[in-house]
């Protein structure tokens, strides 16, 4: 199964389970969780089921296209369901079957792993799912997002697409993966991997980035004052990515690092609060009538 077929299989499987197939976000993110379709939608009482591929940028993981497993930008397949369904483990295992993984032929285990993203004030409990000893999915019940306790609880499933593909295609290097017949992962991503690595580690303009961070932060705060949550959140993502670029460049000293992370976290918290407030003002549109009166 090539990468494209995998994505199609997962999309069609989760669409079938009632997930809206939204699309990758158009602002840089480090993980599918940071896409507002997860980060913001996990907040508040409204039900929400969505799935999407998220190209996730991690500048410090760049390896100039030389490391077979680590890349500047990898791909996550992200599923978010709120409230978490009762049989979510079974549904998830069904998705592995959809990828041609027969659980009777393999060793599939749920191994404790409690997930935390302090910069985004998010934490959850769950597992990493092991397929014959390899972690293929992060399976998390959110408990906190943006510093707020969530209720109801969302379940987040994050598949590492490259890893799963390496396994399914029995390849040793991501660059050898078949994306679609005649086109490899390397054909598509090797050059950008090299160039992004070179940029992140050697060429980025630190002064400009520091300036951008401050400017984005300021703009996020200003926009959030106006209760424009989604617009404000985009600037939080920009702050976060800018920080990651500076970090990869080793431009931020150990002592300053915590301060920058705290600034991002504060913004994320403000967004979370503002989002819930705005949804409430709008009458939580995604709640059905019956659910509203129960509340």
């Amino acid at each position: 199964m090539n990468v494209q077929e995998m994505i199609l299989a997962l999309q069609s499987y989760w669409a079938d389970k009632g997930c809206a197939l939204v699309q990758p976000y158009d602002v840089e993110t480090g993980a599918g969780t940071m896409n507002p379709m997860t980060f913001l939608r996990a907040l508040g009482p409204e039900p929400w089921n969505a799935a999407y591929v998220e190209p996730s940028r991690r500048p410090a993981d760049g390896r100039y296209g030389e490391n077979p497993n680590r890349v500047y930008q990898h791909h996550q397949f992200q599923v978010i369901m709120k409230p978490s369904p009762d049989n979510i483990q079974e549904i998830y295992l069904g998705s592995l079957s959809a990828l041609g993984i027969d659980p009777l032929q393999h060793d599939i285990r749920f191994v404790e792993d409690n997930w935390e993203n302090p910069a985004m004030g998010a934490a959850g409990l769950g597992w990493e799912v092991w397929l014959d000893g390899m972690e293929v999915t992060q399976f998390t019940y959110f408990q906190q997002v943006g510093g707020l306790e969530v209720d109801p609880v969302s379940v987040e499933l994050t598949y590492g697409i490259e890893r799963l593909a390496l396994y399914l295609q029995e390849k040793e290097s991501v660059y050898d993966l078949e994306w679609t017949p005649g086109v490899t992962y390397g054909d598509i991503f090797l050059q950008p991997e090299y160039e992004h690595s070179k940029y992140s580690f050697e060429e980025s303009d630190q002064q400009l980035l520091f300036h951008l961070f401050d400017a984005y932060e300021k703009e996020a705060q200003r926009v959030l004052q106006e209760n424009l949550v989604f617009a404000g959140y985009d600037y939080v993502l920009k702050c976060s990515h800018t920080f990651n670029l500076l970090d990869a460049r080793r431009a931020i000293s150990a002592t300053e690092r915590t301060g920058y992370l705290a600034r991002v976290r504060n913004l994320a918290r403000q967004c979370a609060k503002a989002y819930v407030k705005e949804r409430e003002r709008l009458g939580f549109p995604l709640l059905k009538e019956g659910e509203k009166s129960n509340d």
Partner: peptide, 8 residues
Amino acid sequence: PHGMRWGS
């Protein structure tokens, strides 16, 4: 020590 909630 690490209790959790799920669903609604």
